[in-house]
Computed example of a mutant assay.
Amino acid sequence: MSEPTGVPPRAEASLTTGGVARRLGVSPTTVRSWERRYGIGPAERESGHHRRWSPADVAVLEAMCRLTARGVPPGEAARLARGAAPPVPEPEEPGGRTAPGGSNALPVGQVRPECRGLARAAVRLDTAEVSLILRRATDGLGAVTAWTEVMIPALRAAGRKWAAEGERYVEVEHLLSWHVSTALRRVADRPGQAPQGPPVLLAGMPGEQHTLPLEAVAAGLAELGLPYRMFGPAVPAEALLEAVRRTGPAAVMIWSQSRPTADRVLARRTAETAWGGRGARSRPVVLTAGPGWTGTPTGPGLLRPRDLAGALDRIGRLLTD
């Protein structure tokens, strides 16, 4: 079937500078600056018309974004993006801020370069780059540092952005959360012989849907070679208590993101749930984790870790003593 007359082929679809900026999550000013300073611009131009960016032009810009997000100076990144010969490095811009900014960027503040790159890739919805950055972060920094210094600041920035902009950035936060979860599970589920001994149970409180922090704990425990069981979000109270009786854990971490899901009665019941034969009965230590738990927990067997590193240290001592 022939193409309708007057309709350009799909492969030739093009974008304006504003459209390209929105797609890549940078400001139009940044795109124009790159075009003016480094020659990263449309290959073809029509006199008297707005510049139009072809798919090939956009691909060069995407490569430019990836390279600058990794800390490559803009001039060098431009040469690499165009497929030029090996470049001569040039100085970075003042303050080391070489990557694109503008109103579309996620404001992450003073963070590691990996976090800035992750935030920018997420805004571009660049799944390949998001995955690469997260994989390198977990492999090179370890799960704890990657979570604390790379993942959390980017996730918080995405949350603040869509809260301020309405639903405009929800897709960015969802994409980023999914890839963070994938990266953490890759660490937590590494193949090999399962660690022996009483496990740590990880569970979201009834009604609690947030599980990324628990997945970070699971990844940290896996790196330490410590056994755990992950039950995920919104675990019903009786199911949690039955899991304690069935597995005989040394510790139970129950996560609450907000105060309405922080059930102190259930926390005490969990700490009081015993297992084992007569004369050798034991009870778990319960770690109430997350911002939903305010103040200091009351009752025997209850602990309140302040951060991931502190929680892993407590758990490690419980399992090795």
Rank of each mutant, 00 (worst) to 15 (best):
I315M: 06
H179K: 12
A309V: 13
R10K: 10
Y38S: 14
A119L: 08
D321M: 03
T145C: 04
T288C: 15
T98S: 10
G301P: 11
G316F: 11
R51F: 06
L176K: 02
P89Y: 00
E215T: 04
G140E: 01
H50W: 07
M151K: 07
G159E: 03
G310K: 00
T5K: 05
A85Y: 00
D57S: 07
A157L: 02
A121N: 00
A216L: 10
P113R: 01
A234E: 01
I315D: 00
E46R: 10
P73A: 09
T273N: 06
E215R: 07
W53E: 08
V60A: 02
T29L: 09
T148L: 08
R190W: 01
H210R: 11
E165M: 11
R116F: 00
R52K: 12
T273P: 12
P74H: 00
R82F: 02
G71N: 01
T17A: 14
L241P: 09
T98I: 09
E76R: 09
S181G: 15
D313K: 11
G295V: 13
G204A: 09
D307G: 15
E223R: 00
T5E: 05
A218H: 02
E62C: 12
G25T: 06
V31I: 15
T17R: 13
R120P: 01
R186E: 03
D263P: 05
L287V: 05
A105P: 02
G18Y: 09
P113E: 01
T30Q: 11
E129R: 02
D189Q: 11
T17E: 12
R278P: 15
V217I: 15
G276C: 12
R82A: 15
T211S: 10
T296R: 14
A289N: 10
G292V: 11
G25A: 03
S131H: 07
L240M: 13
T296L: 14
P206E: 03
A239F: 00
K161H: 08
R186Y: 00
A105N: 06
P73L: 01
T68R: 08
V187Q: 04
K161N: 03
V108C: 10
D139Q: 13
L224N: 10
L61S: 04
V88H: 12
V108I: 07
A274Y: 10
D313R: 15
A78S: 08
A239Q: 14
A216Y: 00
A105S: 13
T288L: 15
D126E: 07
